[in-house]
Write a protein that binds this DNA or RNA. Structure first.
Lengths: 344, 344
DNA sequence: GTTAGCACTCATAATGAACGAGTGCTAAAA
DNA sequence: TTTTAGCACTCGTTCATTATGAGTGCTAAC
């Protein structure tokens, strides 16, 4: 464990580096208020911290920059709660008075304010289809055996999917089947549609349709996840203003990543409760080794249903971003709940 | 008008610059096959061409680069039809055997092959909703007066929109109304829905519903264009490999542009028949002054319904890209037609 | 009209000196 | 024993200088 003085200096170095993006020297640190040692003392401590792996030196005669281990320690033990600035509070106030009539809008708005406040790239992973509830199912025949399935959830999301109508099943039978689902399974969580249909309602369903097995296949087709439609991003170009991405190569790697929605979804997916911070290598993905990801889950009906996250350089203002994410995730959960409490 | 020799040399300069991206000197040109003058003669001709505004000199002792006027002349008068290379033909063959079951897929595939072949950023503007025909309309109530309207067209596109149900109109009335539209206006072009409903069917409709005016308002809500969902892009990062976008500022300007879908739609929209080439300033938009846009319309049922385009640096391989766009636009039209001929 | 020759221009790369921020070490002070 | 001041040393950055060479424009000869 580090001594109090070591912690103090590590903290000072990181705080300085976060704003300056330049290696910080001993003199700079010793001049900070709250630090009453001479530059020489600071130098000694910094040398110790470097030996322990919390700091790094780009070259012999440069100041120190935090290592990833340093950031990790900083996030875990040194972080102080963020003090909201006046501008933040104003922006948040404006945000709170904007009316949001539905989920999509709420997602986009929240995303936008998040990237405005942080100046980084931000993501919101929409509610998983399987978590939400059936409101309406419709099969629209197009031609031959081609049709479009349309599934509306209680959150107002519309999921569409091309499907092939199974051979031998008539349109009117499909209609009866969809009607049955709509009346008997309205409000049923999407994830439980199939089990309930197969186990509990099979008998009853027989009275309406013939080809139960084929129709169950159809249901599978309909429910086949469309994960890439769940991701919302904002502020993609904002991150390019960060000095660490002035390098065209890095920039390109990051933009390439963006085209691969599914990778990002995976990156965000395993979010547990509370705010998560993943620093550099902890992301296990080449393209974001120089990035940190801060994310938090948001809730609907007490259940975590999606993730909200920020991607920025490792040199990130963790205190601030964590504060903002935490607040917005909670706020978004609340919005979701109130958005549907009145309607259910 | 230019003399044959002037044309020959302008042609040679542009061709060289297109691949090298460096100012081309008189010696380089004189050494090309097909050019049998000495460097000195070439120099004289180049001086003339510069005076006429077809070439430019970045600085006194550099070679010449084509001006925008030069490119324009090149495109209008000097272009030779592109000779397909073996790799191109292979890629195209692979493309032609890929099965495409529906429009969305065809768009994405065509987009992808286009950006692969050209190495630039490519766009496809999906069929305008107003050009396609009504297949199915459904209103799904959510809560209070909130509902989702779902409109399926003959091209299999699903357009959804949040709508407010007018006060005083019951759900069952809306259902009757939707049913009426579905049965009486099936196959009607979207753009003609409202006029026909108001002019020809008003009387008949009265038998089914009460609040005709409010329901017509609802129709307006539903049809309110969602233009930003029509644009498909591909190869956004490919263009960053072009040397002219190594500059971070330009890059950012271009990426910012990308976030503004509607601007791009406007940029592509006024496409007439055949291939269009817009060079630099001809685009009337700050961010793409250093870019050229080559676009062509594609057809459905003999009508131009959308645009397919390429955005690249002014120094573009016009011959090649025009060849590719022309081919793919025609190909895409054909695919669209066969995709629906069998089904109607 | 065309070409060879030549002086001239100017961007680019390479070189190296001056600078300065920052370090590590040592010896003195607390 | 801990802290601090002093000092030599390192190394990236900046700036001016120079050399290089590609390319031009002009002139005179072919």
């Amino acid at each position: 464990m580090l001594t109090e003085r070591q912690k103090l200096i590590l903290w000072a170095v990181i705080n300085d580096y976060i704003v300056s993006a330049e290696p910080v020297g001993s003199r700079t640190v010793s001049k900070k208020k709250g630090i009453d040692f001479s530059a020489a003392t600071v130098r000694n401590v910094m040398a110790d911290l470097e030996e322990m792996g919390y700091l790094e030196q780009p070259h012999t005669s440069a100041g120190r920059i935090p290592s990833q281990k340093g950031y990790r320690f900083y996030v875990d033990y040194l972080l102080k709660p963020y003090m909201w600035s006046k501008q933040d509070l104003i922006a948040l106030h404006d945000f709170h008075v904007t009316r949001m009539d539905h989920v999509e809008q709420a997602i986009k708005q929240t995303n936008s304010i998040l990237s405005q406040l942080t100046n980084y790239m931000t993501f919101i992973l929409g509610p998983k289809i399987t978590e939400s509830k059936l409101k309406h199912l419709q099969i629209v025949p197009l031609y031959d055996r081609s049709a479009v399935s349309i599934l509306v959830t209680d959150t107002g999301h519309v999921y569409q999917q091309r499907v092939k109508v199974p051979e031998g099943v008539s349109l009117s039978e499909i209609e009866r089947w969809a009607n049955f689902l709509n009346t008997r399974l309205n409000g049923c969580p999407i994830s439980k549609l199939k089990p309930i249909l197969v186990k509990k309602l099979a008998e009853e369903l027989q009275r309406y349709v013939e080809h139960i097995e084929k129709l169950t296949n159809l249901l599978d087709q309909i429910l086949r996840a469309q994960p890439d439609e769940r991701l919302y991003t904002s502020g993609t170009t904002r991150i390019l203003e960060q000095p660490e991405f002035q390098d065209v190569e890095k920039m390109k790697a990051l933009l390439d990543l963006l085209e691969e929605n599914e990778v990002i979804i995976q990156l965000l997916e395993p979010a547990t409760e509370g705010v998560q911070v993943r620093i550099g290598y902890e992301n296990h993905l080449e393209a974001v080794r120089d990035c940190s990801i801060i994310s938090a889950s948001y809730m609907f009906n007490g259940q975590p249903v999606g993730t909200i996250g920020v991607l920025g350089p490792i040199r990130m203002d963790y205190s601030r971003v964590i504060g903002i994410i935490d607040l917005l995730a909670k706020d978004f959960s609340k919005r979701l709940d109130t958005l549907f409490d009145c309607g259910e």
